[in-house]
Nucleic acid binder design. Structure first.
Lengths: 111, 111
DNA sequence: TTCGATGTTCGGCGAACATCGAACAAGTTA
DNA sequence: TAACTTGTTCGATGTTCGCCGAACATCGAA
């Protein structure tokens, strides 16, 4: 992730957001991040390989759903809740209240 | 459409709805239907072939977004707004307020 | 400087998808 | 009955997607 590409808030495209959230695993990631806390890659316990997880996080990032911050070799990710709320008012809340049923559960590795 | 398959309201899956709505053309169809009126297929003016339109409408139907009714050789389609609202409160409204920017415009033939 | 940890990118695979034209099925109408 | 209208289904084609392992790049620590 040499150049983490994050779309500006105004450039977030609805269909891309929907595509990003249409995958159960990515929806699970968003559910986990919905508490607003920033997480490090390594904390995330998802049932896919490292490279696949990287791809999914890239997809979320490219759609404007999450924002990634680098610190040394580590990456931290958090939900762009405020940006999404201002671009698509009410959408995130509506999704989160129904999402847990369909999302692939993503948890945190033991502290 | 020998057997129009419509999922029960309780069986509507969020990720399928999001997938269905992640396509600009299908989003455009939903925008057109958002006024709650029932439309006949022939009324829909979309920039794709007949068979492709049929496929898209089948996708929406299968996801539980629309409901199709047959009458003779004609088919009428309408948005399952109430069902979606009860299953995912607020979702449709949040989508519709931002959708027109990204959706492929679908209009009605000769008004 | 060498090693280990952390992510990214690449190549490849099978599955799913979007699209079209053509053929088909089922009613309506002449 | 024959012709027309309406929508579905069937191949075929090219694209995208999700997934993996392997190779690579980068940084911090020993």
């Amino acid at each position: 992730m040499r150049n983490p590409e994050h779309p500006d808030t105004g450039d977030i495209v609805l269909t891309k957001v929907l595509s990003a959230l249409a995958d159960p695993l990515r929806l699970g990631l968003v559910c986990l991040l919905a508490d607003g806390r920033e997480r490090q890659w390594g904390e995330l316990d998802a049932p896919v390989s490292k490279s696949t997880l990287s791809h999914h996080l890239k997809t979320l990032r490219g759609a404007g759903v999450t924002r990634t911050r680098e610190e040394g070799t580590r990456c931290y990710v958090h939900l762009r809740a405020d940006d999404l709320e201002s671009r698509f008012p009410g959408l995130l809340g509506a999704l989160m209240s129904a999402a847990p049923d369909d999302a692939t559960p993503v948890t945190l590795k033991r502290p």
